[in-house]
């Protein structure tokens, strides 16, 4: 295993402008290819943590992505390594066509149009949406939108995927399809969720947050067997 961690977080704290502390002294590491579930009830700080990973939100403490500190001068390369998937795919798919949405990050990276075309086709193929290039996201189902959102990250060859509630608002079949899809990818994955089944099936490790603090960090099986811990984190 490579000695460079995919993600290193040291003493991360974040306060919203209204004074609410969303993250309080969070520290942990994520190895390349490792899948970890970030679990906690609503308002535990899961989404804020993911948004800090690529500098969209800036807290105090230190974050390193593949050894690179997340500071202003590194935002560009960091954002090419972290693929962030939002809870609501409608927030992530803002272009008139699926093609433009998937190509957005590649264009910002300065790729040539023929490379963009090839990568868009490959990414859409990887999420099972061949031929969707000219479609508008408004016409897609929730499951299809989530897959397009995944394709927007995949086409960037990211090394860390940060997924915020990936299975929310999906029907059981949609959940199954997305879970199977995520299993196939070799990137490190941080999955913010309160879906215990998803965490059990997909992740080797679970980190539990409560009121912005890390209250547990262990193997998935160990955490899921601690009923009291699960209950105190507002998960059941």
């Amino acid at each position: 295993m490579s000695s460079v961690k995919a993600v290193e977080i040291r003493n991360l704290s974040f306060c919203y402008p209204d004074g609410k502390t969303a993250l309080n002294d969070i520290s942990f590491e994520l190895n390349p290819g490792e899948r970890v579930a970030i679990m906690g009830g609503n308002g535990a700080g899961k989404s804020t943590l993911l948004m800090c990973l690529n500098g969209v939100l800036q807290g105090t403490g230190e974050i390193l992505i593949c050894g690179m500190p997340v500071v202003k001068k590194n935002y560009k390369p960091v954002r090419q390594k972290v693929g962030l998937l939002f809870q609501n795919a409608d927030d992530q798919l803002f272009c008139p066509t699926v093609y433009d949405d998937v190509a957005f990050g590649l264009r910002n990276r300065g790729e040539r149009e023929e490379v963009i075309r090839r990568k868009v086709a490959e990414s859409l193929h990887a999420v099972g949406l061949d031929g969707f290039e000219r479609r508008n996201a408004f016409h897609l189902s929730v499951g299809e939108k989530k897959r397009v959102a995944l394709a927007t990250a995949l086409c960037m060859d990211v090394e860390v995927m940060a997924l915020d509630e990936p299975t929310s608002s999906l029907d059981p079949r949609g959940k199954r399809e997305l879970t199977d899809l995520l299993k196939r990818y070799s990137q490190a994955q941080m999955i913010a969720t309160h879906d215990l089944r998803l965490a059990r099936e997909l992740c080797q490790r679970i980190i539990v947050l409560k009121d912005g603090r890390k209250i547990a960090d262990a193997e998935a099986g160990k955490i899921l067997n601690q009923k009291e811990l699960i209950a105190s984190a507002g998960l059941e």
């Binding site: 948004m51 690529n54 500098g55 969209v56 935002y75 560009k76 954002r79 090419q80 972290v82 962030l84 939002f86 609501n88 927030d91 992530q92 803002f94 957005f104 990050g105 910002n108 990276r109 927007t152 960037m156």
Partner: peptide, 10 residues
């Protein structure tokens, strides 16, 4: 949120 998504993709 949309702007955050745009920043996230460079």
């Amino acid at each position: 949120r949309v702007f955050a998504a745009m920043l996230s993709r460079g």
